[in-house]
Design a protein around this nucleic acid. Sequence first.
DNA 1: CATTATATGGTGCGACTGTTTCAAGAACGG
DNA 2: CCGTTCTTGAAACAGTCGCACCATATAATG
Lengths: 186, 186
Amino acid sequence: MGRPPDPARREATLARATDYVLAHGLTGLSLRPLAEALGTSPRMLLYDFGSKQELVAAVLAEARRRGAVRLAEHLPARAASPEEYLRGIWAWMSAPERAPFVRLFFEVHADGLTHPENYPDQAEAITGWFPTLGAAFREVGTGPDDTVTPTLVMAVIRGLLFDLTTTGDRHRTDLALDRFCELLRR
Amino acid sequence: MGRPPDPARREATLARATDYVLAHGLTGLSLRPLAEALGTSPRMLLYDFGSKQELVAAVLAEARRRGAVRLAEHLPARAASPEEYLRGIWAWMSAPERAPFVRLFFEVHADGLTHPENYPDQAEAITGWFPTLGAAFREVGTGPDDTVTPTLVMAVIRGLLFDLTTTGDRHRTDLALDRFCELLRR
DNA sequence: CATTATATGGTGCGACTGTTTCAAGAACGG
DNA sequence: CCGTTCTTGAAACAGTCGCACCATATAATG
């Protein structure tokens, strides 16, 4: 007996906290401003998530979940060519709407360089792409279990995202992807 | 008259502070632990640098200076081929001794995504490579002022560094660079 | 009503942060 | 010696941080 628990509240808080982190970044995240922006209290955040660390972990998981869903919605199930697939990924990832996700992605990576213990499944964020990409690029790959081609393809994407987020030069980065497509085609 | 100033002290402090930041990262940097590790006091750090912000700026400038010097020492003045040049850059940047610099590089980029105003010359860290790289890759480039090929080349390097620092998989990243060289060659 | 469980506000603790203030020490010239 | 300038220590200030403790409110069962 007693008052029944309300798991929906935690979920709603998590969703809005994820919005907040995507908007403001992870680096300076603090419970009190976050709580105020969410119309709740630091007390409740700790009540729901146990600690700040666990809250952050939940937010990152939620952000990953959202990103995966959106990507799955966007990419064609079977692209006509590797080039088309690659252009699709670049168009999706470099779109301004994805900027908050990209920033969070780079923030997590940078923090993971100093505190790897906090992000145990970070490598999986890279290797997880291999099955999908390996299939999409099998024409230009070296075999069914080729991880090298996906590695290079994602390196180009991430490297160009790094450039784009730093310089803001969309034209030049777009052209660089064109050039990579050209190299792949030959 | 009066006691003469001692500019050497500031320089020595800056050098050792740069060591410290390279070793411990920029994210959690705090004056008191830094001062203690340097055998000085927060009071003196502020006396010498004015504020934490200015100290950080000085440390980043010093780190850039060191990196540039080391790279200039390592790279051959004129490589036999673009491929050899590219392999030289990758070997140098991915070497374990460069890990502290690479981490600092990624940390600055990530922080710059949230606080661009703090890093006014960040774009120059990317575009500054173009003259040098454009010359080295003129055989495979599109012209004398080609910025697209250098953009792609550095994107591959940075993207693979991202992968390497996350997964630690040197073999796979080395192979991916081989693959990129192969694409360039054809 | 009482009981029992969850939900929530308020308050404060201890440890940090960058920075300032005040005072004293240390090295020079006259 | 004095005066001047640079250097340095100790302490405090005002703020933030995550988090814990305690009381109370709320909603269910009996």
